[in-house]
């Protein structure tokens, strides 16, 4: 579903992403782990076509993102780190705009479905700008779900939420993972280990581990994912 080969991104002289290679199969959830500034958001922005890479190759559902960007974007739903919301619109207006943008034909049914899935029913006619952070996050997630894309890319979907909301969103992601291929980033380790089939740990733009959670623990000789994370990222820093 998603193939990334030797991805490189320079910001000026700075190498933000350094030769990352990974792939995610259909119906898999990939947890994307790394300290702040490791290049998680940059990688996600490249996968979704928001920014372009300096080198390497990205294929979404077999479509090269450089050859046919619009075709590739059709199969992606993206929730960026800061949900891209228009504060002056109501939730319904906003979702309806996203539906039109993505070319959804039956807008009313689509919005009703997604609002039900993401728990937005009660706030559907409120202005986005007046919503709490949790509901804003859900509205962003709802926008990503519009058009039922095969691939979901979620950048820190639970950041800023309270514990109850975190559990709800986590359940939702698990649920979504049954039908969609999901990449989700976080620096919260429990979250990643709770939902992911595979984990990619990056540090300073470099991939330091890419495997199932169990194998990462085994190869790092660690007892918990937290331990493995520290071992892998600190080891990198000592180099």
């Amino acid at each position: 579903m998603i193939e990334v080969k030797n991805l490189v991104k320079y910001y000026g002289d700075k190498k933000a992403v350094n030769n990352i290679t990974f792939s995610v199969g259909e119906g898999e959830i990939l947890g994307f782990l790394g300290p702040n500034g490791a290049g998680k958001s940059t990688t996600m922005n490249i996968l979704t076509g928001y920014i372009s890479m300096t080198g390497g190759e990205v294929r979404i559902c077999g479509i090269d993102i450089l050859d046919d960007p619009i075709g590739a974007k059709r199969s992606i739903g993206y929730l960026p780190e800061q949900p891209p919301l228009y504060p002056e619109m109501t939730v319904r207006e906003y979702l309806s705009f996203v539906c039109e943008l993505k070319g959804v034909s039956d807008i009313k049914t689509e919005i009703d479905d997604i609002a039900k899935k993401t728990g937005l029913k009660d706030v559907i006619s409120r202005r986005v700008g007046n919503l709490s952070k949790g509901y804003k996050q859900r509205t962003g997630l709802a926008a990503a779900l519009v058009g039922d894309p095969k691939v979901l890319i979620l950048d820190e979907p639970t950041v800023g939420l309270d514990p109850n909301q975190i559990i709800e969103i986590r359940e939702l992601i698990k649920e979504l993972g049954k039908e969609h291929t999901v990449i989700l980033s976080s620096h919260i380790l429990q979250e990643i280990s709770a939902v992911s089939d595979k984990i990619l740990i990056i540090n300073k733009g470099r991939s330091v581990a890419f495997d199932t959670p169990e194998n990462i623990l085994r190869s790092a000789g660690a007892e918990s994912l937290e331990d493995a994370f520290i071992k892998l990222t600190v080891k990198e820093e000592l180099r």
Partner: peptide, 14 residues
């Protein structure tokens, strides 16, 4: 400013 350009540019429109 609102980062909504992320929505527009990552949507399947040119």
């Amino acid at each position: 400013k609102l980062k909504t350009d992320q929505l527009l540019i990552t949507a399947p429109v040119s």
